[in-house]
Design a protein around this nucleic acid. Structure first.
Length: 169
DNA sequence: GCCAACGTTGGC
DNA sequence: GCCAACGTTGGC
């Protein structure tokens, strides 16, 4: 079975962690921890691979929308925050032998000539079926098809190809 | 601040 | 296993 993927949309509230913060981070990389939703967990753990493209989306923002381009920079690891009693993401039910929650590293790769607002995304025919735009969707990580990826890049004023270092089929 | 939509929890 | 109550997400 085609595992799909290769491209993802990941949501972050800019007041918590913005694309600009990722751009300024060491190696433009951060561990995307704190995901506590089982569907998103399964995507992180089972589907995401280093080099996959990431649309970095700002939720609870003004306006909400895609703020930058990133890539998956590591395979999934056990999310360390689940073992840290001081963390708001601590999970007493999880064990190191059988971790419940996972995280991947994410690296910023391209700034956008123009951010792409949610309103613009909703107005774009080529994004009508995008998982992140479906009614009621609250997943912090969701799949993006290759055609959606390139539609979005064009809207953002980026030329092909994808992220530096991305492995094209 | 409001509230629709969804996920999780827990009583039964 | 059902489902009501509750908490969270996230656009507006």
């Amino acid at each position: 079975m085609d595992r799909g993927g290769r491209y993802w949309l990941m949501k972050s509230e800019p007041e918590v962690f913005s694309f600009e913060a990722l751009w300024k981070a060491k190696n433009r990389t951060t561990l995307w921890d704190g995901v506590r939703n089982y569907k998103a967990r399964s995507l992180l753990r089972d589907e995401m691979r280093p080099g996959d493209g990431v649309l970095f989306y700002h939720s609870n923002a003004d306006p909400p929308g895609v703020a930058g381009i990133a890539e998956v920079a590591s395979a999934a690891v056990a999310d360390p925050t689940q073992f840290d009693p001081a963390s708001e993401h601590f999970d007493a039910e999880s064990s190191r032998d059988d971790p419940r929650w996972f995280a991947v590293e994410v690296r910023a790769t391209e700034r956008l000539a123009r951010p792409v607002s949610l309103a613009a995304m909703r107005a774009e025919e080529g994004l009508k079926e995008m998982v992140a735009l479906q009614r009621g969707n609250r997943l912090s990580v969701s799949p993006v098809t290759e055609s959606e990826w390139f539609v979005l890049r064009a809207m953002a004023g980026l030329s092909e190809p994808g992220p530096v270092g991305s492995r094209r089929p």
